[in-house]
Amino acid sequence: MIQAGTDTGGDALSFELLLDAIVLGMLVGCFYAAVSIGLSISFGLLDVPQVAHPAMLLLGSYGTYLLGRWGLDPLLAGVILMPIFFLFGMALYRGFHEIFEKRGEATGIGSLAFFFGVALIIEVGLIMVFGVDQRAVEAPYIGSSITVGDIPLPIRMVVAFVVALLFTGGLILYLAKTFTGRAIRAVAQDEGALKLMGVDPVKIKQWAFGIATATTALAGALLIVITPVDPNYYRLYIGRTFCVVVLAGPGSMGGTLIAGLILGISESIVLTMFGASWAQAVSFGLLLVVLGLRPQGLFGR
């Protein structure tokens, strides 16, 4: 049994390990979709270079941690934070619109630097308030695991999987079926036409950016449920979130789920086969490959 971790041959043991890796990867993959769906809206649909999205995610995790110290369940804390994040997102978009979109510089160097600055301030703010040590939350479902078939599954992963799936699925439905959701997708396709229909595109975009930001509250709560976080986590999630969005193809909501699964499973397999020192390069490597071979993504417009 001791050799199981190091053996990479084709025997039954390593096949079992591979199966474990795939199942765990699927759970993580759904979580990756949940952390990326907001970016899929802000960057994919609205074309806003929101590089501060991963930093917002961490802000969600730390907010959950703070509320958790008052005894609040992490997932409940994530839900409570969502309206605050929603308002913050609306304000952020309003600022971005006034400063850059009105000048016609929505995708220029200034707007990228702006969001980069926002990310930097969030990251440093977190370091100054909480320090660089890892922070974790407590809940009944963190720490124990169940066995399905022969595969041991940490319950926190299963919880994150279920919540992520419901959450991502709900958002996809919202964007596909409701009037506002359809307007958001319309603004991505043709702003002028939307104006002619009597809808203010800026208001719709502001609403959509608010939603995109609100997702990071719950996704951040899921993140700290899955693993303890520190402020430097931000960098890792630049790779993961952008990898998922680009792989899915900007604007493809359903694709986000599939792309998340692909990333989750690939990372998990690399982790099992080659160890943790290679795993962090998977998302960035995959991102480079997609940019080189198929920049429009799997399901791109």
């Binding site: 270079p49 590089v51 220029g108 960098r235 630049i238 790779g239 390069a281 940019l291 920049p295």
Partner: peptide
């Protein structure tokens, strides 16, 4: 060949890889 932001993200990726 892609839009500017893709280049930006790719440079982060190159650094990490």
């Amino acid at each position: 060949r892609l839009r500017g932001i893709f280049f930006s993200i790719a440079t982060v990726a190159v650094a990490i890889v």
